[in-house]
Design a protein around this nucleic acid. Sequence first.
DNA 1: CGACCATTTGATATGGATCAAGCGATGTGG
DNA 2: CCACATCGCTTGATCCATATCAAATGGTCG
Lengths: 229, 229
Amino acid sequence: MLAQTPLQTSVLGQELLTGIQPVHVARSSNGDPIELMGAPMQFARNEEIYGDGESADYLYKVISGTVRTYKVLNDGRRQIGAFYLPGDMFGLENSTDHAFSAEAITNVKVLVIKRSALTALASRDNTVAQQLLRMTTRELARVQNQSMLLIKTAQERLAAFLLEMADRAHRNNEVELSMSRQDIADYLGLTIETVSRTLTLLENSAAIALPTSRRIVLRNRAALRRLNS
Amino acid sequence: MLAQTPLQTSVLGQELLTGIQPVHVARSSNGDPIELMGAPMQFARNEEIYGDGESADYLYKVISGTVRTYKVLNDGRRQIGAFYLPGDMFGLENSTDHAFSAEAITNVKVLVIKRSALTALASRDNTVAQQLLRMTTRELARVQNQSMLLIKTAQERLAAFLLEMADRAHRNNEVELSMSRQDIADYLGLTIETVSRTLTLLENSAAIALPTSRRIVLRNRAALRRLNS
DNA sequence: CGACCATTTGATATGGATCAAGCGATGTGG
DNA sequence: CCACATCGCTTGATCCATATCAAATGGTCG
């Protein structure tokens, strides 16, 4: 199911703010409203970008690195809501407060956009409003597809995850995962042990190869797609 | 988690299109663009409103009855994405095609809004655009909260469900469920047997009472909230 | 080289699924 | 008005996929 909308997340935010590179913003901040909106910012591995419950004054666009959004239950169980890769926007989910926290998985560069500024721009320029709505709608569709995990087996969840990641990291049929097994487990609602076992199972059935634990080669997409239902 | 955003879904669409009652629309369709947008329509119990894969030309607002959106895997497993009650809007998830199907759980009256008309209106009137974005954002937050089910036990899932339904059906502490155990099971990623057993378990622990199988009294919200983490 | 952390692998436990039967409410035909 | 079929729900017995507990392996960095 995830694979049915492979490019959605990675396309998020491509339309809006294209051409804004941090370098660009940094050196020539002329009067252009869109350029002024995005401020470059860095976060170190595992650093918090925003916390659950904080007011959601900003939207973010990933320039480099990987971000995870998550929520923890009071007894420590953690659910990862999404992984965001370069080009993706995150923070869209929040009307007022953030429901999820966001952390840098690797060192990360993001563009930070003041929500009020974007809203103001959107009210003047309705193409901006439309783009914002389109991005939010796609994010909604992505999360809805995620909800299919609830009725899937461990193999199916991992097949979905691998197809999603492979399609997002355009380097076809080979993925370099930036996240740990624990992150994957918390994303799919499994344990690290089950993730690990299931990966070796997929390897033994020749669906994938594991040159290193973080590098995954899709050897038989058809088989994975079949699992993906 | 679901209970943390209790009113979101039921509030969806309250802002936009308020005052549009089907009767009203039916009898005086004057030139007002918003009123013209919504056309009343009826669906019988279990009737399909739209199908997975159909182009998403319309948005819907529930006037009366209950609607479920769902998706089935090729082997028949069904995941219900959401239940929509009077006042809720659905169909927001779709950029182009519907990813989910929608069916009437009970006899249902809806207002059908042509997406293109709404988009056109939104491009002229940015308060409409803002409302549309706000509704979509809330729906996104709701679905994200749903994703917490992945790491929850059966008891926690049912507690979340009951609190959500009780808060949406403003009649406090008592809910008349319009959906079957099978619908609940498919919404929570459980089986009917587990749903049934878990409800009697909650009844035995005095958290709820079950005057009839479809009527549920919340006797101890605190206990349910505790389960809801 | 040694310490540390991530990952894999093994052994066992368990929550929820599956299979099966019973029960109660609703409706239909005699 | 009652017998009976049907359907939705509950309850019981057993099974199994994944969790949990535990240990080994491997990779990285000082």
